[in-house]
Design a protein around this nucleic acid. Structure first.
Lengths: 295, 295
DNA sequence: CCCTATTATGCTCAATGAGAGTATAAATGA
DNA sequence: TCATTTATACTCTCATTGAGCATAATAGGG
């Protein structure tokens, strides 16, 4: 009865040199998307083949994110049937060398990267702008505090999407409906695209806690320190080194290769390998990471 | 470029008398579905209005589940473009009195209800049938054990979808492609529908652990025991009474009404009220429940 | 009115796990 | 040889959790 168009949108994520990357198009203003002309059993399978054909990336973990509808009447003001359905997916991959189109994920969400900053002047600026927007409304102030970890509230790394939507509503983004005078720094995208990106990061951060998906982003062999740096890159916050090791080793997720990696300085680190690729039940395995639910 | 049809599918869930219910159509063989002819901003909003109009239920928490594509050529064998997209949603509601069309959720998944059974003869039967199917293949046996908690593996209540898919693959369901001689008990549905149902239960079980969505299923005031019974109904497993109380009270999620409920026997129980409905940030609140991740 | 059955509520104890720090090991280069 | 650097091992404390025991408040029967 309802004839509409449909489209797949892909958020492809890799981590290189401790920096999370995402594949973009159009000078970083867009995400890869294509028609769902799949001759395959499932959307997921079609998605995988399409991506692997377009890019040269082998996709590891794939996950459907969200389905949006776009009404045609958005511009004209006449709200109508939806005309376009966008089904978004996240895919994880390894990136051997630098490639075209990959951009730092945190360029789009600078406030989500809390690895080095101490007091974080950016967060203070955002807090100030949000306070202005809240205009003393208690419910709004409460929401800002909960979302951005203000006023003694803990910072929760999984609230990526909530934070993006709050900034959008508050008019602090270039793509907001009524952008204010002060805008949060960071590379912009059309709002629905950056929203998908935020959804992907939120889902990845949530998933990495209890499923061994980090390993999809790692090379064949790796040191525990490299593994930790990758987790930190995704989680956006630093972890306690000794506890990280303890937890990983206790879970029997990795095995030693017997080799070690020599770097410029210090004691050589042992190289490990993920055990789950051998066993066929990756998606069933659990995995715990010492990421504090809140700081 | 690709003109296709689209459809919303709703999984509406309520709990009545400690039994989780789902709204069905067609003698319990189908789920409510309708065209996405929404004049509204988002799919979610359109979904809510459509459901509240069709049924008389006020929806609490709403969540998008998954989007499937159905290729037209499935019957003819000619794999083709997808012709129909199904966007599925889960909605939680309260049910005052018994109403038409609501059926016990565990009628569809008897093996997921582990509240009373001790040794569980059903699980043994399933285990036997799965072993036959596995034919000694180590990977298959391993997957069965992980998924159904066999051979000393822990039972994980969130693997609802994995279990359904395994049973389907193993030909133990009436809707399987090649149904075997022994079929698991339980009410059937066309495979894609029961799959959506399984997705909903899995998501609900996962969500109930860390977001206060149970309260969407509760009446205005309730005793802690009623709350626990509702959680148990969803989780499918019994909980430790004293620890449940401790955890709920420690989280400041509920407040006393000052009243108490008299029942036939025993000490009267205090009535509580959820505090989150007052504060507007329900979706941000956390909540912990003493559901063991594995038993 | 006392006693028992029944349910709600309060409390204790041990085991576990997480956060954080200290100590030791194995490399490099001066 | 020694300082430096990074990896790895161990310890200690505190919070959380699982489990059980104890007490409180009701109803009903002698």
């Amino acid at each position: 009865m309802n004839e509409i168009q449909s489209e797949l949108v892909a958020v492809l994520i890799a981590v290189q040199d401790e920096v999370p990357l995402v594949l973009t198009l159009d000078q970083g203003r867009n995400l890869p998307s294509g028609p769902l002309e799949t001759r395959h059993r499932s959307l997921q399978r079609g998605m995988r083949l399409w991506v692997e054909q377009q890019t040269q990336c082998r996709l590891g973990h794939i996950e459907q994110l969200y389905t949006f509808a776009e009404t045609a009447g958005l511009e004209t003001g006449v709200q109508d049937h939806p005309r376009l359905i966008r089904i978004s997916y996240m895919g994880l991959t390894r990136l051997e060398e630098a490639q075209q189109g990959w951009r730092g994920l945190y360029e789009y969400f600078p406030w989500e990267n809390r690895r080095e900053h101490g007091a974080d002047p950016l967060l203070s600026e955002i807090a100030r702008a949000l306070t202005v927007w809240a205009k003393g409304d208690a419910a709004r102030l409460w929401r800002c505090a909960e979302t951005f970890g203000l006023d003694g509230q803990p910072w929760s790394d999984e609230l990526v999407l909530h934070r993006y939507e709050l900034l959008w509503e508050a008019g602090l983004l270039p793509e907001s409906q009524q952008p204010g005078s002060w805008l949060a720094p960071g590379r912009s995208m059309p709002s629905d695209r950056r929203r998908i990106l935020a959804t992907a990061l939120a889902r990845l951060r949530a998933k990495i806690r209890y499923r061994p998906v980090v390993f999809e982003l790692m090379p064949e062999t790796f040191t525990l320190w490299q593994l930790q740096r990758t987790v930190e890159a995704i989680a956006g916050s630093p972890l306690h080194k000794q506890n990280f090791r303890r937890l990983i080793l206790a879970q029997d997720l990795v095995e030693e290769t017997g080799k070690a990696e020599m770097q410029a300085q210090g004691r050589p680190a042992r190289l490990y390998r993920f055990k789950g690729t051998v066993i066929g039940t990756r998606h069933l395995m659990g995995s715990k990471l010492p990421i504090a639910r809140s700081v």
